[in-house]
Design a protein around this nucleic acid. Sequence first.
DNA 1: GTGGTCTAGACCACG
DNA 2: GTGGTCTAGACCACA
Lengths: 125, 125, 125, 125
Amino acid sequence: MVQVNYRDSRPIYQQIKDGIRQLINSGALQPEDKLPSVREQAMALAINPNTISRAYRELEAEGYIYTVSGRGTFVCERTGPDLARVKELMDKFDRIIAELKLLGITEEEMVKHIKDIMNSGGSND
Amino acid sequence: MVQVNYRDSRPIYQQIKDGIRQLINSGALQPEDKLPSVREQAMALAINPNTISRAYRELEAEGYIYTVSGRGTFVCERTGPDLARVKELMDKFDRIIAELKLLGITEEEMVKHIKDIMNSGGSND
Amino acid sequence: MVQVNYRDSRPIYQQIKDGIRQLINSGALQPEDKLPSVREQAMALAINPNTISRAYRELEAEGYIYTVSGRGTFVCERTGPDLARVKELMDKFDRIIAELKLLGITEEEMVKHIKDIMNSGGSND
Amino acid sequence: MVQVNYRDSRPIYQQIKDGIRQLINSGALQPEDKLPSVREQAMALAINPNTISRAYRELEAEGYIYTVSGRGTFVCERTGPDLARVKELMDKFDRIIAELKLLGITEEEMVKHIKDIMNSGGSND
DNA sequence: GTGGTCTAGACCACG
DNA sequence: GTGGTCTAGACCACA
């Protein structure tokens, strides 16, 4: 379902959050789909249940999923564009572009790069 | 000279590194320019000298500055574009674009965003 | 594991770095082996954790080890000979030979010395 | 007479010591030759007289030169091979060879390297 | 428990 | 005055 890499600089719970967010954004997980339980997920990834728990809890706070005690965890209806997240990413985006610019990367190179990436993954619709 | 923001998620020494890197890349700091002494900088930013020291030490390891014990810290002659740094930034760039894409940001929006930023800062020539 | 000598002219963090590098190069520490935790190591050597931390951090920057926050520090897969390090050592090598030459040490003596050392450690195969 | 390089990692007084030792060892400075006075030397190199002073003082302690108050500083009769210095260098030499060995440099390569260096400088006799 | 960051303050080498 | 090293001890994020 999601993958965890110990060498990744992101903390484990963050990797899980990112992974699930991606599955939801890409449509691989549809609204009302049930997520693996904390224990199952912890087993599957061989990591501490607390870590899964934290990932779920934060995703719930962000409005991606909801939990029904005793029944499980499910994907929320819409979620819509996650504006807070977009803003966060855009801020980083800006800083990186600014530094790349100073390092001599041209607008054309960046635009080309974006086009490459946008097309590489194919569409998920 | 540089600014530190306690609410920024980056550690302080990292903010200082980024700030100085930027000053050097942008030409605001020229080769052989002297940086504020560790103590001065610490006073000015109201943070611990060790933190400044760490920022300077790491920038030295990256080849941006050099330090002469007992005399001060100075900007290196730049020896061409910092390829390692460009690669590092490009990696982050890619991951952000990938997520923005999943969040529904279109190629057009990103390209427009880049154009805005590239023009905002004026030219460095 | 490693030894620290207060009378050595090298700073402590440097001695630790050198010691660990050696353990890795010699194969005594294998890839994915776990290093003692910062605190353990600090206890064992009776020095401040910060000093260990610095040694680990710099070895990480050099690509010898990697660290997973909250889990520990581990040896990297070696990716071929560390060219930067070899160059660094060769520079020192040259300067020492140059001075020994001026001090009247002959080529024969040096070569003999090298042979002695190369054979003393046994083979690492 | 000697050269000082601010970018060198060695402290200034050390560079001066090394420089003068070299001139003596190579025979460029003969026994009873007079060294420039502290003030002259400081002028010539545009550095602090204290620094020259320290270099002279330590070279005197090592038996390379001697000072006659009011007359100047002179090169000692023989000095002979500076055993302490040779030992010091040999220790570093050993450590470097050991690490180079572990990094996969062969005896042949080292010996070849030494031959190259020993011949490059020509003889000073 | 792990490592990461930061502070406060000391001492040293250097100029 | 400069930077370099080290200690002691705190707090945080993570598992």
